[in-house]
Design a protein around this nucleic acid. Structure first.
Lengths: 221, 221
DNA sequence: TCTTGTGAAGGTCTTCACAGCG
DNA sequence: CGCTGTGAAGACCTTCACAAGA
């Protein structure tokens, strides 16, 4: 979370992790600019949209290549395409969901994933009462089918929406199946092998750090 | 967020923002330890649970006070209590929700906020078809009642669950009412006055940075 | 002239290593 | 002896400032 403290460390990388974390935002803004018919953008304009300095943007992009034209700026379409290529966003990613309780169902019906290429293609639960049920287009499977399904459907990403008490165990099962990227909605920070990336979605933690500033602001009101 | 890159900058602060962002995690672990009957913990043990170095924990805590006992460690109950005091977690915070569509309803029914002291006490929407409806214990109000309600119920925190297209506008309304902490579920990064803190909940962004590592791992499979 | 790309400088955060105390 | 608290060192990240190209 950076800032939400929200990533798994790595070492043998030329591009700093913090740069990689910013790239998807760049892509998002570039798409918005494309939709507005903007064809060329400077680091200064991009920086204003993203609330970062122009220097930061130029430096970040310089880790990845030389995309700009001096005196002119960046071609919006070209830069977006290159960044998506680098991030691996020009393809579709199959995702499995673990846990189809209240939260899991909300995630299943969230319409923001599929348009970005993240397709939830399998759902699992341990509860016999929901295994076998059909949610949307998916049939809820028992956990012991995880390994086979991950392999068959070439699933690279797991989404954890189970109670905290079993999150560590689920994380272990996922990594043992070869899943190397996990989006974790459980409010715990399980241990994972070094090769596995974890991002935590933890709104309570976000609230709990903001209250510090609310409590310590100078003028009350 | 940081990491997840997920905070609003500040400057005139003795305690680094990155430290504040970690404190809620410390509190969470300390509570878990209390529940397990652990009474004293060392920075080394805490670090193992949190996957950070012992030195980091000692340094972080040293910004806020001297809570430990040499040769022994930290009293779990005392440290938890002090950190909660510092973060402003020993009280209740009233929260308003803007947007009661699919996402807003999921947030309303999420059971994780209230036990941590975050109470959603008002909900707003612009859509005439839902204004006036009752969701759980709340009656959905029209946006023009925002200012009066924020004042009357002493609301300090706003949660944004509206479409991206109106998020900036809603952010403006909230800040004009004096709300200084915002949890934003819309996939945009609106501009806010410097005094206002924003945390973004953006699972798509998290996925989009993880795919970089999936795409660039050495052995494929 | 305008803007990129980039070494160098500056700033921030993390880790080290040890004095000091129980 | 074990562990905290903390200056100092080191690593990392951001910003500056300018050469060079369109």
């Amino acid at each position: 979370m950076a800032l939400q403290p929200d990533n798994t460390p790595s070492q043998p990388s030329r591009v700093p992790d913090v740069v990689i974390d910013r790239l998807p935002q760049y892509v998002r803004i570039l798409h918005a600019l494309m939709d507005s018919g903007v064809e060329v953008v400077s680091s200064h304009q991009l920086g204003r949209r993203l609330q970062v300095t122009p220097a930061q943007i130029r430096k970040d992009l310089s880790y990845l290549g030389r995309f700009g034209k001096q005196g002119r700026g960046y071609d919006v379409r070209y830069l977006a395409s290159e960044l998506k290529q680098i991030l691996g966003l020009n393809r579709r990613w199959n995702v499995c969901l673990i846990g189809v309780g209240r939260l899991g169902r909300a995630i299943l019906s969230y319409p923001g994933f599929a348009p970005e290429g993240f397709e939830i293609v399998a759902a699992f639960d341990t509860d016999d009462r929901v295994v076998g049920a059909t949610l949307g287009e998916l049939k809820v499977q028992p956990m012991d089918e995880l390994g086979e399904t991950v392999e068959r459907l070439n699933i690279s990403i797991g989404v954890i929406a189970v109670p905290s008490s079993v999150a560590q165990e689920v994380m272990k099962l996922l990594t043992e199946c070869g899943v190397e990227a996990i989006l974790n909605y459980a409010p715990v920070y399980p241990h994972v092998p070094e090769r596995v990336r974890v991002r935590n979605v933890d709104p309570v933690l976000s609230l709990q750090s903001m209250t510090y500033y609310l409590s310590h602001r100078n003028n009350h009101g």
